[in-house]
């Protein structure tokens, strides 16, 4: 974990100005303080406030910033967003009409404004007809959909962060992303806040269920429904969010959390 920098004041009092481990940048004209004159300690307390994606962009500004950024990196691989295959809206119960099961190419939903808009479309048709099998160590593993029965499956591994791809042969086996979350919550009360869901308790229990836990350990769980869409529920904040796409399709299940391959080589401490 990065140092918390709580001793800023004390340090400044005893050693003015705080001696940086590296030669200070040349003083700027007319004694005006610019960002280049800030000590690494100050720069770190600024960079520490950035979301990981912004922090990595800032680290690319110059070597001085890279050094400062490398000391305030988050320990866990940063989550950038989610990949999933959108699906058509399921008909409301009790309709037993078959729903259109068209296979759509995977899309990416960035976590926040700082996150990059990643894509699996490295070539115009690269990800078409492919289905995500797993997301692991910054790689998205795809198989043909539907999967051919005869040969050993050909797995396409795409790294959307570096925009590289390679094909690997072998048996696709899911990584073990299971984890235990122990928290007691009254889901009835939570679902009461959704206006569209049926009011009848039994009916509602029949058409809503916890489908998944966010692999990125954000404390979120996903609630799937029969005909009412997919919801994410944040167990930390108690916020329930309907996951709807702008084109009327629904978010697919499972939701593949995408985290960067971590730690990054270029931010490894060198000095």
């Amino acid at each position: 974990m990065a140092p918390k920098g709580r001793c800023r004041g004390r340090k400044a009092r005893t050693i003015p100005p705080p001696a940086a481990a590296h030669p200070p940048p040349p003083p700027s004209v007319e004694g005006v303080v610019t960002v280049a004159d800030l000590t690494e300690e100050l720069l770190r307390s600024i960079l520490r406030r950035l979301a990981p994606a912004d922090l990595l962009r800032a680290a690319l500004a110059c070597h001085h910033w890279r050094r400062a950024a490398s000391r305030v990196l988050p320990r866990a691989p940063p989550l950038l967003g989610y990949f999933f295959h959108p699906q058509n809206t399921v008909k409301l119960p009790p309709s037993l009409e078959p729903t259109d099961k068209t296979h759509y190419s995977a899309v990416f939903v960035p976590l926040n404004a700082a996150s990059p808009r990643l894509s699996l479309d490295l070539a115009p048709t690269a990800a078409r007809g492919l289905s995500i099998q797993d997301v692991h160590l910054g790689l998205v593993l795809l198989l043909h959909h539907p999967r051919p029965q005869s040969l050993l499956p050909r797995i396409l591994a795409i790294d959307p962060a570096s925009r590289r791809r390679r094909a690997v042969r072998g048996e696709g086996r899911r990584s073990d992303r299971g984890w235990v979350m122990e928290r007691e919550m009254c889901m009835i009360k939570v679902l009461d806040t959704v206006p569209r869901l049926p009011k009848d308790t039994k009916w509602r229990m029949a058409c809503t269920w916890l489908s998944d836990i966010d692999y990125a350990r954000t404390g979120k769980v996903f609630v799937k429904t029969w005909g009412y869409g997919l919801y994410s529920f944040d167990t930390e904040t108690g916020k329930l969010e309907c996951l709807m796409m702008t084109d009327g399709k629904e978010y697919g299940d499972p939701m593949y959390a995408y985290t960067l391959s971590w730690p990054l080589e270029f931010l490894a401490p060198r000095d």
């Binding site: 994606a53 962009r57 990059p116 570096s162 925009r163 990054l264 080589e265 270029f266």
Partner: peptide, 8 residues
């Protein structure tokens, strides 16, 4: 760096 972090 671009090899590792093209999006940035």
């Amino acid at each position: 760096i671009r090899q590792e972090l093209a999006w940035a």
